[in-house]
């Protein structure tokens, strides 16, 4: 279905206007990142740089590069593990309901709302006890744990849209808990995995509080290194913006390449939320 053709120009005008609004901050980031430092002031924020200066990018890149790898070591396993855990939980809680399953889901979901600032101290002490403090593994662990509620929610909603009759017939064919998961749920939820993976990838990539408090120097992911570019008193915004754009590239690529699946995945899953 489409709005009739004579309204099309209005439609495009609207979309372009909205896109301009969405790109406005990006425009400011890009021009700021290309300016020499003395031009980075509030009064000149809209002005194009007098000459293109890529030194911010090279400076940001040299400082961020070592930490970029840390971020991948962190984000990839954390995303995979939390997607796997979430899908198992979602599967059990939507298709193998037992007495109290909904209550249990409620209890798990509630964990999403815990303010992380308040639990830093016991968390850091716990990680030190088990020897995971100041390690990427520790950070992976934390993100997997605190990712359980939201991944469970997403997968549970996703699986709710898979008709129970499919499961029943598979059971009659002799498939058990594992068989149903492996041969019905997983293949049907590839797009669901994409949605959850994109969500977790972005959030873990951009997460700062855990990263800065759980890791030091060599172990730090890129978002902390990005903050490290600024000082305790003086911030060089051109380098900061260049760094921010560089650090956003992996997530951006994820969106560009998986954006289609993102919508498809949501389409397959959340309609029956």
């Amino acid at each position: 279905m489409a709005i009739r053709s004579f309204t099309r120009p209005i439609l495009y005008a609207l979309l372009i206007a909205l896109s301009c609004f969405y790109l406005m901050p990006v425009y400011v980031m890009i021009i700021t990142s290309l300016k020499p430092l003395e031009e980075v002031t509030l009064s000149q924020m809209w002005q194009l740089p007098t000459s293109l200066d890529f030194s911010s990018y090279s400076e940001a890149f040299t400082k961020l590069a070592p930490n970029l790898l840390n971020s991948f070591y962190l984000v990839i396993p954390a995303t995979l593990l939390s997607a796997l855990l979430g899908s198992l939980n979602g599967y059990v809680l939507s298709k193998w309901k037992f007495k109290g399953a909904n209550t249990l889901f409620t209890i798990i979901l509630f964990g999403m709302f815990i303010p992380y600032q308040s639990i830093l101290i016991p968390l850091i002490q716990f990680l030190r006890e088990i020897g995971l403090y100041n390690s990427i593994a520790g950070l992976v662990f934390v993100h997997v744990v605190y990712g359980i509620p939201i991944t469970t929610l997403m997968f549970r909603n996703f699986y709710a849209s898979i008709p129970d009759s499919m499961i029943e017939s598979a059971k009659i064919d002799g498939a058990g808990f594992i068989g149903v998961y492996r041969f019905i749920m997983v293949p049907l939820s590839i797009t669901g995995f994409v949605v959850v993976a994109i969500w977790q990838f972005t959030n873990i990539w951009n997460e700062f509080l855990f990263a800065v408090t759980i890791t030091t120097s060599d172990q730090q992911p890129v978002m902390v290194a990005l903050q490290n570019l600024s000082g305790s008193q003086i911030v060089q915004w051109n380098v900061q913006m260049a760094g921010a754009l560089l650090a956003a590239l992996p997530t951006l690529l994820v969106y560009i390449f998986l954006g289609k699946f993102f919508v498809k995945g949501l389409l397959a899953g959340s309609v029956k939320g």
Binding site: I124, R128, T216, S217, V224, S230, S232
Partner: peptide, 21 residues
């Protein structure tokens, strides 16, 4: 072992937990 951000607030959070541990 520098800790960035928040004009030292993040560093203080880490320091406090390390000292208490």
């Amino acid at each position: 072992a520098a800790v960035a951000g928040g004009a030292g607030t993040n560093a203080k959070a880490v320091l406090a937990s390390r000292m208490q541990g």
